[in-house]
Design a protein around this nucleic acid. Structure first.
Length: 440
RNA sequence: GUGAGAGUAGCUCAGCUGGUUAGAGCACUGGAUUGUGGAUCCAGGGGUCGCGGGUUCGAGUCCCGUCUUUCACCCCA
């Protein structure tokens, strides 16, 4: 019986695995140089943990199950709740701020589409314990540090940023009751996604007062924070929210990434836990969904039974990013490399020595391969090329005198050398060298 | 979860209004080439035409169902 792969999953053959590793290694390297430490949690958690935050509807989009002890569990659809749980658990012993990152494998029982699968990887970076916009700026910088590093310019991508606090205070000033805000957010989130006329219609269904609706449309259309005062008379609350955004942009400017960033009141984000800054990173060319997003969630730790400690974070999935980089030819996984391929002219006579030499090379820290089957030298060199070997050691007649032929596969130059001399010259990949490459 | 398109070799696809034994390129394996690689030429393996049912003398082709996939919704934690 032929078993197909499960809907919405991917098989990672070596080629796909190389791409996946290239993306994830990049995320990790950039996280570390931005001062984040790696963490991870379990791949399943109590179902209730996701209920606390998002309500019952979300449960339908979870892969959930009961264990043998009748516990309701779920495969993690995101890692932020786990982060909140872990941080709370040790909050009294952890020095603040906490700067942590993770690349969890996540699961969502949604209908698969381009850039959206049921199993994927997501890069998460979070700063816990810093109240000011500098932490938000640092998180955004870290995300851009990666994206810029792989070749994406301000012509390619854009961080669209807003603030829940600003939105709430402005809407309040316009005359929207505080209770109505939550009903309104999903509509406002549609602003960029539907035609202007349709947006107004959707809005008028939620806002009875035509004047208020008009003001909202006006606000949603502004391009700069400074335009707000042209629409309303800012009160203290509005001014405080504006100040935070201005400070955030100032930091981004000092960090040299402000040209990627654009104020956009249409950014609301679905997640209930965001409290202040919110942003999404978009592909400026294509019609792809957001490649990543984040924001400030100052109340989440408290909601999870911990102290009131501010936090801010960002997440980016591998699916949309992968599609986008593929389209632009920016996927550059390192090809597999081989230091030595050992070819035997007469397999029966020299295979034992070939295996011995390979083992010695491997022990000394070099990668080495040999052929399993008897084949012409021509074929074996072909094999060595296919494996991207830097050098090929040929064991032929001269090996009767303990002589190797070492062929450089790049320059095609080759030399004869005694086996002892070869290893004496070669030495061992030193620990210093290993440490150096680890530092990179 | 709703609607629409697609599904033929590992991949990209061809296959006429239903008609003999379903094809090509790439990839793979082997040979030309038993001591010199990325090329070229030749040969070979590989398909229950997604799966199940129906119509028909006859189905890759038409009909129904189903699964997968793509797109648009929903959702985006």
């Amino acid at each position: 019986m032929k078993i197909p792969p499960v809907k919405g999953t991917r098989d990672f053959y070596p080629q796909e695995m190389a791409v996946r590793n290239w993306i994830i290694d990049g995320w990790k390297r950039v996280s570390l140089r931005n001062g984040f430490e790696e963490y991870d949690g379990p791949i399943f958690e109590y179902l209730d943990m996701y209920r606390i935050k998002s309500g019952d509807e979300i449960v339908e989009q979870l892969f959930s199950f009961k264990d043998r002890g009748d516990r309701n569990l779920a495969l993690r659809p995101e890692i932020t709740p786990t982060l909140a749980r872990m941080a709370n658990q040790k909050i009294n012993t952890l020095p603040l701020p906490i700067k942590w990152f993770s690349v969890p494998r996540l699961f969502r029982a949604e209908r698969p589409q381009k850039g959206r699968l049921r199993e994927f990887f997501q890069w998460n970076i979070d700063i816990i314990g810093i109240e000011g916009p500098l932490a938000d700026a640092e998180v955004i910088f870290c995300a851009l540090d990666y994206l810029r590093g792989i070749g994406l310019t301000p012509d390619d991508i854009e961080v669209r940023m807003s603030s829940r606090k600003l939105l709430a205070s402005v809407l309040e000033k316009i005359g929207v009751a505080e209770k109505r805000l939550e009903v309104l957010y999903p509509v406002l989130d549609k602003k960029e996604k539907v035609p202007a006329g349709e947006f107004k219609q959707m809005l008028s269904q939620k806002v009875a007062d035509g004047k208020i609706a008009e003001k909202i449309v006006e606000f949603m259309g502004i391009k700069a924070v400074s335009d707000i005062k042209n629409i309303i008379e800012p009160d203290d609350k509005v001014n405080a929210a504006i100040d935070r955004i201005v400070v955030l942009f100032d930091w981004l400017k000092r960090m040299g990434v402000v040209e990627y960033c654009q104020f956009d009141p249409g950014i609301v984000r679905g997640l209930a836990y965001y409290t202040d800054s919110v942003y999404e990173i978009y592909d400026k060319r294509g019609e792809l969904r957001a490649i990543g997003g984040g924001g400030r969630y100052d109340d989440l730790l408290k909601q999870f039974g911990g102290p009131a400690i501010p936090a801010t974070g960002f997440g980016m999935g591998d699916c949309v990013l992968g599609v986008m980089l593929e389209e632009r030819g920016l996927l550059k996984p390192a090809p597999a490399e081989l230091d030595y391929f050992i070819a035997c002219v007469e397999l029966e006579q020299t295979q034992q020595d070939a295996v011995k030499i390979a083992a010695e090379l491997r022990t000394r820290g070099y990668s080495a391969e040999f052929g399993y089957k008897s084949a012409s030298l021509s074929r074996q060199l072909k094999q060595a090329s296919a494996k991207n070997a830097k050098k090929c050691i040929i064991l032929g007649d001269e090996f009767k005198n303990n002589e190797l032929v070492v062929k450089d596969m790049v320059t095609s130059k080759q030399k004869r050398i005694k086996l002892d001399a070869f290893f004496a010259e070669l030495g061992t990949l030193s620990t210093a060298e290993n440490a150096e490459s680890a530092e990179k």
